[in-house]
Amino acid sequence: MSDPGRLRRELLSLLADQSGDASSLDRLCVGVVSALPVDGASIAVTSDAAVRVYVGASDPITARLDDLQFTLGEGPGWDAVHDRRPVLVADLAGPSGCRWPMFAPAVLAAGFRAVFAFPLQIGAIRLGALGLLRARPGPLGDDTLADALVVVDVAALTLLDTRMDDPPGPSPGLLPDALGLYRAEVHQATGMLMVQLGVGAQEALVRLRAHAYAAGQTVDEAARDLVARRLRLDGGPPG
């Protein structure tokens, strides 16, 4: 598009649109795919060093891949947030994809070759990451990169508004209600594993991730099973 002002207005219009069932951030991601030469877009938030969850995606496959990063504890979104800089991989099948030995094959199997992630931050505040997927390999052009940075700015300000007690803009309700439940379930499951296994919080979360990966689940699905007592990781019977 390469018209930053127009793109910003279009994205803000999507965020303000309250029609339909999709969340505002889902609509934003769909708009990103329409405006930029990419095939998938997602937005994830980071609540602390251990909890990361997507809150918007352009489609179910992109949402699943973004959530997979939390399950595996690796991926461009993690690196972008941790290093506070964009992660631009033009060909995931090349040497650059080797940094994510579990995540990269899953993305390639889903039909994507290029991945791009941008940290969402305001000053020292880390908010999350914007992820972009593309089926064909190749770098982002200068115009596309400029447009992506406009998306980053809009998404970061939107997420910052949702963290304020009295946000000035039309942002209340942008984050799905499921986000709070997701955090609660993961934290509750981590606490239960600490008791069951006699380990610390970090080790309990690692065990939860490992089980989710082995079982082909996301971490929230495994946490939900554990909280509902359909699952135990200490060898004891469920229930």
Rank of each mutant, 00 (worst) to 15 (best):
A93P: 00
G198V: 04
A90S: 04
A124T: 08
H211R: 05
D161G: 14
D91K: 04
D91M: 04
R9K: 11
L120V: 08
F116D: 02
A184Y: 12
V32H: 05
V30A: 10
T62A: 09
L140Y: 09
P76I: 15
A44M: 13
H82R: 15
G239L: 12
A155P: 00
R85S: 12
V32Q: 04
D67L: 07
P167F: 09
A214Q: 09
E10H: 03
P137W: 00
T71K: 01
P168E: 14
R163L: 08
I61R: 10
G239Y: 07
P167S: 11
D48L: 09
L14W: 08
V195P: 00
M1Q: 10
C98I: 08
R163W: 04
G235W: 11
L65Y: 13
R232A: 15
A57E: 02
L133K: 06
L65K: 14
G191I: 03
W100I: 03
D225P: 03
T162V: 13
A93T: 05
V107T: 11
L231F: 11
D220R: 12
A189V: 05
L149I: 03
V107H: 05
E185D: 07
E10R: 13
D59K: 02
A49M: 03
A93H: 01
P95I: 11
G5E: 14
V227W: 09
A228T: 12
E10M: 08
S42C: 05
P105I: 10
Q188D: 11
Q217T: 00
G131H: 06
D161I: 01
S47H: 13
F103Q: 15
T162W: 09
E221P: 07
G20W: 14
S96K: 08
V154A: 12
A16R: 07
S13G: 15
G180R: 05
L231Y: 13
G94L: 05
R224Q: 14
T158I: 04
P37W: 01
A135E: 11
D67W: 04
V32F: 01
L145F: 15
S42Q: 04
L127H: 10
A212V: 09
V38A: 01
G138A: 01
L72R: 07
P37H: 01
V87G: 07
A210V: 04
P176M: 11
L65P: 09
L14P: 00
D26G: 05
D220E: 10
S47V: 15
V45A: 11
R27S: 07
S24A: 15
F112H: 10
P60Q: 13
L68P: 01
V30D: 06
A35N: 01
D153M: 08
A50I: 02
S47F: 12
V199I: 13
H187W: 14
P237R: 15
Y213P: 00
A80D: 03
G235E: 13
S23Q: 11
A215C: 06
F103I: 08
A80M: 08
D39A: 09
V199G: 00
D83C: 06
L133Y: 14
V55C: 06
W100N: 04
A35M: 02
D166Q: 07
R84C: 03
E10F: 02
L181M: 13
A215W: 02
T218Q: 09
D48T: 11
L11Y: 03
V38N: 02
G73S: 07
